[in-house]
Amino acid sequence: MSDTKPTFLERMQNLDRRILYAILVVFTTVPLFIKTDLPVEPDAYTKALYYRLMTIPQDKTVFLQSDWTVSTRGENAGHMEALLRILMSRKIKFVVYSVGDAQAPGVYREVIRNINLERKEAGLTEYKTWDDYVDLAYFPNAEGTLNAIAFDVRKAFASRRVKDPNTGSDRPAFESPVLSKVQTVGDAGLYMIVTASSTVDRAVERLNERTNLAVMCTGVIGPSALPWYQAGQIKGVAIGLKGVYDMEYMMKYGLNHPDPNKNGRIEVPWAGKEDKSAEPVTEGKTFARGSLYYLSFHFAILLLIIAVILGNVGMFLGRKAERAS
């Protein structure tokens, strides 16, 4: 056994993983206290999603299938918040439910409550259940439920009753202003899926020929959702934390929209789609959770790159030394 002192790289190769975790905690925590809005080039598929959301006719109802829980709050909460801010600023009604997880309704209800609170504090009108949105809670068996929605949405939701605050009684959901004009799922302004699981696959399989689908999903699900986008089966995608920040960035600057504060410069151009533009979001917050997390995200990736380089260089030098001896 060699009694020479290990080199820096050799020591790095044998670094206790707990030290790496501690460094990761520091790298992800410190940037949370630094307020900065980094410039970004949103992905083309997220631009398509933003464009779709900003061009939904205001008399149409959005179907919102929310299939995420607190375990993916780091990505999906930002998606949900950005989506609700856009819908609420555009006064678009929505129906929300889950087909993925029994815990999902509790989580999306908290997001709706928080966004409403945020609007109240900003002096904006709150979204009211029954008049502006209806919450249909959880439907088990994604395959069966989505099949039912595809063939007859009125039958699929027939058993759901929602409290009408005007009368104080529970009434069938389809009597509400949100769903009264909806006959089929094709009447939806957009069918949004916010998910951390393969429920997006189930929805594409059953609904893509009947309505316009769009997806906000985690980085784990994202790669499998992209072929759907490429084939036109879904109209837009926001993936992971990058997707959250992309959305917030476009909410701030618009899409193909000349910024009057920057001498009419277009902050977010859409190459090849110059005829399609969307305004920024004019009320409420734009930069929020995505902006808060994005710098930490860069620091975490920087740490990963450094660790990979150190590990590989150390391994390479170690093998070289072994061969030499």
Partner: peptide, 26 residues
Amino acid sequence: GFGAIFGSTVMARFALVIDRMFYIWI
């Protein structure tokens, strides 16, 4: 392709850690 998928998965896990840090420290 698998490498890109794995990279996307790693980024997703980072987002979850950052959210937990936000939960604790903010």
